[in-house]
Design a binder for these strands. Structure first.
Length: 396
RNA sequence: CGGGGUGUAGUGUAACGGUAGCACGAGUCCUUCGGGAGGAUUUAGUUGGAGUUCGAAUCUCCACACCCCGACCA
């Protein structure tokens, strides 16, 4: 990708009202922009990151044996009446009427839709997931992507013939979630949580410790117990081993629920069907990755989710850098090539640091004296010179 | 929804009730080219409505928008 043609234009300053560090960098890097309160436009760079995250998750879902579906955002009132959530769910549904005066909701979650679909296909067990836009009529949105009113979510639903089957799968999902977050460069903590209006008996949240987080969690350093303050109350001692608990702020990036028969009974499924549902908010995950992977200059994307692998900067040496750009592309390396001639070196460096692509390459008069290219990792200080000839088989 | 705050150009920021200015960005030209360079030139703004006043970005009221705390959530 030629940077001169890139739609995204970085900003030196973030809007005054923006507070969260992730929000600042994502706005300044032009990954996303706000449309209105709690609603964001994802621009090309932002979409690239989102797709990377999406594919990591999708891959792990397939490994779990789940099949992909796409359920509608427009949902009929009647299904929601069956579970009694039309008026009760919190945050409330976005509701409107179509031209025939029929009442419709924009889906905030999909238990009703998936259970309805399952109704006449009673092969057990089965797991289905989707990566789809959710609409939530939140009281207020916060921290940029950390809580939006419209956002992309991966939601997985599982159906089992007995509680044991559900329990086994639930534990498998837990492992998979740890795996997903680790791949995204995050160290997650699984805590006991309240199940809210989704319901069910057991639920766990996946937390990333961060000052930007809205949740408060209690951690026992002795036995590993961890719980959301919402669930456990503000107790000082571990309920399992009586040790003193440590309190931290955290971002909830995933939430899993063991629903039991709540939906299958409410929607009158034949026979015993035990369900689980499992969610990950993608933009929130993306923002959290930024919260945990940055310095004062900008983002430091983990390789796995970076929009590009290499950021190639040309400092007034476009012939040689153009050649290197072509070579790298031929090798299948994802390169953002800063081919702009009207930008100073300082500007290019500053932007590269802000955008946070893992590997920076510079071609300049200085490097060409030695017939080489300068390579620097975004998360390291050292630079090294590598002969241009060697770049014919560049491997990161 | 309750409480608090803020609305000036794409972004940031000035202007006592008295000429809306500056910087960055964007456009054009020149000189630059290893950490957001310099010069010339162009571009673009007081959220909307009512009121007070000779005169309102500034004071008052209403609306709208956005942000923060509460609450809720992935």
């Amino acid at each position: 990708m030629l940077q001169s043609k890139l739609f995204c234009k970085t900003k030196r300053e973030a809007p005054r009202e923006v507070e969260a560090a992730s929000h600042k960098f994502l706005i300044r890097g032009d990954f996303v922009e706000q449309s209105f309160a709690g609603v964001y436009r994802f621009l090309p760079l932002g979409v690239m990151v989102l797709r990377k995250i999406e594919n990591i998750i999708r891959q792990k879902m397939f490994e779990l044996g789940a099949q992909e579906v796409i359920l509608p955002a427009l949902q009929n009132k009647s299904l929601w009446l069956e579970t009694g959530r039309w008026d009760k769910i919190d945050p409330p549904l976005f509701k409107f009427k179509d031209r025939h005066e029929r009442e419709i909701a924009l889906g905030s979650t999909h238990e009703e839709e998936i259970t309805d679909s399952f109704r006449h296909r009673v092969e057990l067990p089965v797991a289905l997931f989707q990566i789809q836009t959710k609409f939530r009529n939140e009281m207020r949105s916060t921290g940029g992507l950390l809580r939006a009113r419209e956002f992309l979510m991966k939601d997985l639903y599982s159906f089992h013939s007995d509680e044991g089957g559900l329990k086994d799968f639930y534990e498998k999902v837990k492992k998979t979630y740890f795996d997903i977050f680790k791949t995204c460069g995050l160290k997650a903590l699984c805590v006991e949580a309240d199940s809210g209006t989704i319901g069910g008996s057991i639920s766990n949240e996946f937390m990333i410790i961060s000052a930007a987080g809205e949740d408060r969690i209690l951690i026992c350093d002795q036995c590993g117990f961890a719980a959301n303050v919402e669930k456990s109350g503000k107790v000082a001692k571990c309920p399992k081993c009586q040790s003193i608990l440590r309190q931290e702020s955290a971002v909830e990036i995933g939430h899993i629920f063991s629903l039991g028969e709540k939906y299958s009974q409410a929607m009158s499924l034949p026979g015993a069907v035990f369900m689980g549902c499992y969610g990950i908010g993608l933009p929130r995950l993306m923002a959290t990755i930024v919260e945990k992977n940055r310095d004062e200059r900008g983002i430091i994307w983990p390789e796995t989710v970076a929009p590009f692998q290499v950021h190639l900067l040309s400092l007034g040496q476009n012939e040689k850098s153009e050649k290197l750009y072509q070579d790298l592309q031929k090798q299948g390396v994802e390169v953002l090539y800063d081919d702009r001639v009207n930008k100073t070196a300082g500007e290019k460096f500053a932007e590269a640091d802000l955008l946070g692509i893992p590997t920076r390459m510079v071609v300049s008069a200085k490097t060409l004296e030695k017939d080489s290219v300068e390579i620097k990792k975004r998360n390291e200080k050292e630079v090294k010179l590598v002969g241009l000839a060697k770049m014919k088989k560049y491997v990161k």
